[in-house]
Amino acid sequence: MSGAYRVQKLIQDLQRNPAAAAEFARDQEPAYESYGLTGEEKALLREGSPPALHKVGLHPNLQMKFMRLKAPRPPGAPGLMDAYLDRLLGR
């Protein structure tokens, strides 16, 4: 498995597993270990800057998902489009 795929697969799997995602939000290191990431890959993900995420080979869409996994929206926080929903839903 190539490095870029391994890292991307980690993000995709977390995205589909709420329990694992909650654990990841608390502590990312066990997930990095279990996916066999290299020291460099872990360092780039820990840094988390756009250039670092690009260098580790994370697709832009998965970069956004990675950032959300690291810092989930608090429960009850407004959604991206909430300001428009009354009008869109006619309520």
Binding site: P78, L80, M81, D82, A83, Y84, R87, L88
Partner: peptide, 21 residues
């Protein structure tokens, strides 16, 4: 196919949602 919060860009956001409507 997306909208973002209007804060700081209210006039532009208003024209976008008006256009969608």
């Amino acid at each position: 196919h997306v909208l973002f919060p209007p804060q700081g860009v209210e006039p532009q956001a208003g024209r976008v949602i008006d256009g969608m409507m």
